[in-house]
């Protein structure tokens, strides 16, 4: 029984760890826990949160998307080039463009997994290198720098509304949307079914391939959105932006308790996993630890989280003896 409660409150444990961490830092460095500072941490983590939510639905269907960071970089570059060529394009249109391009790049992954039956890790490993290469082709290896971008282009994610930048609001909206998607929408529940038991899913009338395709399109669209947000926020676009970021995204999911075997996880978990990484990244300079510690700490956190998840998911042995049944 306690086991079950523990399982259900995986997110609660992570939240407790996160709060404890913030409090411990605040005990020595109170300025870290100031609302403005925390809001800044959140804003800094917003892109990771959005990508982690997209990755979550892919992992829920027992797949993996290694191409998100390359998708982000490619879409970011295309959007930046488009804005450069036609500065009159309004930002909302650019965002729609980013969603569409990212979604299309995700659809390429999805089609290959669905129709060609290639393992997702191979597909996205392939598209990861292809997308990076394409950035070079379309940009000629050139950087697009801040002074080349229009002000509107750069300003949008930083515009402050009700005390928070638009970037943060987009992350919050995505979280809300995904919480509804995975708990209340038939497609969201299909993600769990497909990852939990693909064979059984077929019998309930769920098309496994199509559902996975949908997950890749969603993940891709969010990566595209983040492409614009990243390029606009950091005001630079080049081939290698967000290189290796896909592993941070997967790490956020793993820390958030999303099972790599599929079918287990929640939007709250993904958000907390991302925030965990974000808090560590932002706290290190505050507590005067070299930022070079960040990588090792997230590595350790991933290992601990995986170990914890594995323990929680372990199947119970068969209980046959009456005596043991009562004791359990």
């Amino acid at each position: 029984m306690t086991m079950r409660r523990l399982l259900q409150s995986r997110e609660a444990i992570l939240l407790a760890v996160l709060v404890a961490m913030v409090l411990a830092i605040a005990a020595r460095f109170p300025q870290f826990a100031a609302p403005a500072s925390l809001a800044n941490v959140f804003n800094d983590t917003a892109i990771l949160i959005i990508l982690a939510l997209g990755q979550m639905v892919v992992i829920l269907t027992r797949c993996i998307d290694l191409s998100v960071a390359a998708n982000l970089a490619l879409t970011g570059m295309i959007v930046a080039l488009a804005s450069l060529a036609a500065p009159a394009i309004p930002v909302p249109l650019l965002i729609l463009m980013a969603l569409a391009i990212g979604g299309a790049l995700g659809a390429v992954n999805g089609i290959l997994v669905w129709k060609a039956h290639i393992p997702p890790i191979v597909v996205t490993l392939g598209t990861l290198t292809i997308y990076r290469g394409v950035i070079f082709l379309i940009s000629g290896g050139e950087w697009i720098n801040a002074h080349e971008m229009s002000d509107a282009f750069k300003a949008f994610p930083r515009t402050v509304i009700l005390g928070l930048p638009v970037l943060s609001w987009i992350a919050i909206a995505t979280v809300a949307l995904f919480a509804v998607l995975v708990t209340r929408m038939p497609l969201g529940r299909a993600f769990y079914a497909v990852g939990g038991n693909p064979h059984a899913a077929v019998y309930t009338g769920i098309d496994v391939g199509r559902t996975r395709f949908a997950a890749f399109v969603i993940s891709g669209a969010l990566a595209g959105l983040c492409g614009y947000l990243w390029v606009a926020r950091y005001a630079v676009a080049y081939v290698d932006i967000a290189a290796g970021f896909e592993l941070d995204v997967i790490a956020a999911c793993v820390i958030g308790g999303i099972s790599i075997a599929g079918g287990i996880g929640s939007a709250g978990g993904a958000v907390l996993g991302a925030l965990f990484i974000g808090v560590i990244k932002n706290a290190l300079p505050v507590i005067n630890v070299s930022p070079f510690w960040q990588l090792a700490i997230s590595g350790l956190a991933i290992i601990l989280a995986v170990a914890f998840n594995a323990r929680a998911e372990r199947r119970k042995g068969r209980v046959i003896l009456k005596r043991a049944e009562q004791a359990a």
């Binding site: 769990y192 939990g196 038991n197 059984a200 019998y203 309930t204 009338g205 079918g263 287990i264």
Partner: peptide
């Protein structure tokens, strides 16, 4: 598709009942 069969009211209970452990 399996969906057509389900819509027509045909359902199967299998040898190792295929359902979803985590749901």
């Amino acid at each position: 598709t399996p969906h057509d069969a389900a819509n027509a009211g045909v359902t199967a209970i299998h040898q190792e009942t295929v359902l979803f452990d985590e749901l």
